[in-house]
Write a protein that binds this DNA or RNA. Structure first.
Length: 271
DNA sequence: AGTGCGGCCTGTCCGC
DNA sequence: TGCGGACAGGCCGCAC
């Protein structure tokens, strides 16, 4: 579900509620997520203060005095700040109860999300250490994509969704960025020129910034920390628009499957 | 080393 | 109204 804009929206939303606040209790109702929830989270975090909130790719990093919590929202995860005495709903798996009795509440029907605890630098964590650059950093460029893609036969859409190449580009924004760049998603990554990768890198930055500005994309269940949807869906050019008219040329949007994921493109605007 | 699949889960929707 | 199957914002781990 959540790609980079949704995770960043969540980070910005929960940050003011957590910074410098102290955890009173951790309640784990379901510890079978993508990986088992670390044991003794309650003991580890009781009376510990939140010092910082960061994001690396689609991971949220909540730093405490004694270590770092890594959170991944998977396909269907969301985090909300709930007022005191809000009864948990189905699939509300974990509460971090603050001194004010507000909770940071993790909700995830499909349980593809995960929670990790590390005392070391979070960026050294096995799941983070091999990640590619942040797409909104200056080191992410067309040159980077070009260099990494030489001799690679995989479809360019799969290539840009590989978090070892660049983080944060999921199924929606990969399709959307390729539309903006005029590149057909099934093109082998190794065949694409530097000039076209420059366009693609710029398109990825543009689409992610625009989506963050709109509070992310809500197709089905993404909600921010207040439980409200994001509004980028209205700006989607191709995603889930199979058979509808291209906003640029009126051709019909096509849907194909790449790497077992639905992919959408305009057969006329994208080559 | 790169690529392509299976699997982890629940909810929803569609066709029969 | 019920039931099976396909599909859904991710991504690791494993074969080849």
């Amino acid at each position: 579900m959540p790609e980079l804009p949704e995770v960043e929206t969540t980070r910005r939303g929960i940050e003011p509620h957590l910074l410098q606040h102290t955890v009173k209790q951790v309640i784990v109702r379901q510890n079978q997520l993508r990986w088992p929830v670390p044991k003794n989270l309650n003991k580890t975090l009781t009376n510990k203060r939140v010092l910082q909130l960061d994001r690396r790719g689609k991971y949220l990093i909540i730093s405490f005095e004694n270590g770092h919590l890594l959170l991944h929202l998977g396909m269907s995860g969301s985090l909300r700040i709930t007022p005191p005495n809000t009864a948990p709903r189905k699939h509300d798996h974990i509460d971090w109860v603050l001194e004010s009795d507000h909770c940071l509440r993790f909700h995830d029907p499909r349980r593809f999300g995960s929670v990790h605890w590390t005392k070391d630098s979070p960026y050294e964590h096995p799941l983070l250490i091999k990640l590619g650059p942040e797409p909104l950093d200056t080191e992410f460029s067309g040159q980077h994509l070009f260099n990494k893609s030489r001799k690679r036969k995989a479809a360019v859409k799969n290539f840009i969704m590989d978090s070892h190449i660049v983080v944060g580009v999921g199924n929606i924004y990969a399709s959307e960025a390729l539309f903006l760049a005029g590149i057909k998603p099934s093109q082998p990554a190794g065949n694409i020129s530097l000039i076209r990768y420059d366009k693609l890198a710029k398109a990825i930055k543009k689409i992610l910034r625009a989506a963050i500005k709109q509070g992310g994309t809500t197709l089905r269940d993404f909600v921010n920390e207040q439980g409200n949807p994001g509004y980028f869906k209205q700006k989607l050019n191709v995603y889930e628009r199979e058979g509808e008219k291209c906003k640029n040329c009126n051709s019909r949007i096509k849907k194909i499957t790449l790497g077992q994921r639905s992919s959408y493109f305009c057969p006329r605007c994208q080559r």
